[in-house]
């Protein structure tokens, strides 16, 4: 069962800290977003392996959009 990483708020993707295939610990930063001129660190909800990343830097996202999946 894959766990999804969703956007906590509307904003723009700044950079990816992890790539597909990387292992992450719970609470480790997966990617950095920008919202209201502030860096928002989106962290992993669970430990696992990044199965899929659906966004790239520079892309705008809405709140709750799917950003990545962890297995």
């Amino acid at each position: 069962m894959a766990t999804s990483v969703t956007a906590p708020m509307v904003g723009k993707i700044l950079k990816l800290e992890k790539q597909v295939g990387d292992t992450v610990q719970e609470d480790e930063v997966v990617l950095v977003m920008e919202a209201m001129k502030m860096e928002i660190f989106v962290s992993a909800p669970v430990s696992g392996t990044i199965k899929n990343i659906l966004v790239e830097p520079g892309q705008s996202v809405q709140a709750d959009d799917l950003l990545a999946e962890i297995e």
């Binding site: 708020m9 509307v10 919202a35 502030m38 928002i40 660190f41 962290s43």
Partner: peptide, 11 residues
């Protein structure tokens, strides 16, 4: 963020 990495209160 300091108390919970999963918490995003900005909006």
């Amino acid at each position: 963020q300091r108390y919970n990495r999963k918490s995003h209160l900005l909006m």
